[in-house]
Deep mutational scan, measured.
Amino acid sequence: MISNAKIARINELAAKAKAGVITEEEKAEQQKLRQEYLK
Rank of each mutant, 00 (worst) to 15 (best):
M1T: 14
M1Y: 15
M1N: 08
I2V: 07
I2D: 08
I2K: 07
I2S: 10
I2G: 04
S3G: 13
S3F: 06
S3Y: 07
S3V: 11
N4V: 09
N4A: 15
N4Q: 14
A5Y: 09
A5S: 10
A5K: 07
A5L: 08
A5V: 12
K6N: 10
K6L: 15
K6V: 15
K6R: 06
I7V: 08
I7F: 08
I7M: 07
A8C: 12
A8L: 11
A8Q: 15
A8I: 10
R9Q: 02
R9C: 00
R9A: 03
R9T: 02
R9D: 01
R9H: 02
R9G: 01
R9V: 02
R9L: 03
I10V: 05
I10R: 03
I10T: 03
I10P: 01
I10E: 03
N11H: 14
E12S: 04
L13Y: 02
L13T: 00
L13P: 02
L13G: 00
A14F: 11
A14H: 08
A14S: 10
A14N: 13
A14I: 08
A14R: 13
A15M: 07
K16Q: 02
K16G: 01
K16L: 09
A17N: 04
A17V: 05
A17R: 07
K18N: 07
K18A: 10
K18M: 09
K18E: 10
A19C: 11
A19G: 05
A19P: 00
A19K: 15
A19R: 07
G20E: 03
G20V: 02
G20L: 03
G20M: 04
G20D: 02
G20A: 03
V21S: 09
V21E: 05
V21R: 07
V21L: 12
V21F: 07
V21Q: 09
I22V: 02
T23Y: 00
T23A: 03
T23K: 03
T23R: 03
T23H: 02
E24V: 13
E24A: 11
E24P: 10
E25Y: 05
E25A: 13
E26I: 01
E26P: 01
E26A: 00
E26M: 00
E26Q: 02
K27D: 04
K27T: 06
A28V: 13
A28N: 09
A28P: 00
A28I: 14
A28L: 12
E29M: 03
E29V: 03
E29L: 03
E29S: 01
Q30G: 05
Q30V: 12
Q30M: 12
Q31A: 12
Q31C: 14
Q31I: 08
K32Y: 11
K32A: 11
L33Y: 05
L33T: 01
L33F: 03
L33V: 02
R34M: 15
R34K: 12
R34E: 15
R34T: 15
Q35W: 09
Q35M: 10
Q35Y: 08
Q35A: 10
E36G: 04
E36F: 05
E36W: 12
Y37T: 05
Y37W: 11
Y37A: 09
L38V: 13
L38P: 06
L38R: 11
L38G: 10
K39E: 15
K39W: 14
K39Y: 15
K39D: 15
